[in-house]
Amino acid sequence: MIADILTGALRSGTSVMLASQGELISERAGVINLGTEGCMLAGALGGFATTVWTGNPWLGALAGGLCGMLLSLIHACLVLDRGANQLASGLTLMFFGIGVTAFLGRSFVSEQIVGFNPAPIPVLSDIPVLGEVLFNHDPLTYLSMLLVPALWFVLFRTRIGIILRAAGEREEVLFACGVNPRLVRYAAVLAGGFLAGIGGAQLSVAYTHSWVENMTAGRGVVAVAMVIFAAWRPFRAMLGAYLFGAAQALQLTVQQQGLPISPYFLFMAPYVLTLAALLIVERRKRSSVPEGLSRVFAADADG
């Protein structure tokens, strides 16, 4: 049963994890995108539809990413060009995503796809317990596991990462270095939307093989919370996402065992757990919050 829950943690946590890594990029550059939920839904529908049309889940994942990116483009334009409030724009985008995907996705509700299927890695998947938990997943999940160290490397070991973080800390410093912080933020928001879209596609194309209206059910919001919970660190965000996945898996297991607990209560459990995690996390590291997150860059900075 423990192995089941752990396997399920990865399986249902991957979509949140992808979205949280994307949001992490965006927030490190100083833009908080509450529209992540909408981007995930756009990705889920776009990915699913493309897979239905082409039969190729890889194309589906790519299309999902692009759909997420498209939606985040709206956020980027509003926030970075028009100076709109980040929170207002993000929230609105979330509800826009929910509505527009419900509308466009009506005809896909009954569609069937093959999608991604678990591809056990030879030899490694034969390791007892560990093999089942770690090495018996769909290709998208494997890729997402590689993404985390890659993102860490880019953020902390390359100049691109330094520029990205500088954009989120003090844009005037970056400006003085001859880099346009707005472009950096644009790129970061789009990258964030792309990853959220792929996360959504993972949900529809790899995990459930179906499209249901509002199928992300708040995962995008949880992903945003995870980034804060993780103090803007990729590995911690991954851990948080898997924790959320584990709670999902636990809920499913409990339901399957037929324990007399209300299903509504169980649906609530992952979110309660996320709240608890946020509560427990110490607020000691004041300096870990990117300074620029609450500020919006004025284009005519004289720095």
Binding site: I162, R165, E169, R170, V173, A176, E291
Partner: peptide, 20 residues
């Protein structure tokens, strides 16, 4: 023109470096 959250070396890399 320094970023408090980053190390001295990172700050130098931001200003003086080139390439990615």
């Amino acid at each position: 023109r320094l970023i408090p959250a980053m190390t001295a070396l990172d700050n130098v890399a931001l200003a003086a470096g080139s390439g990615w």
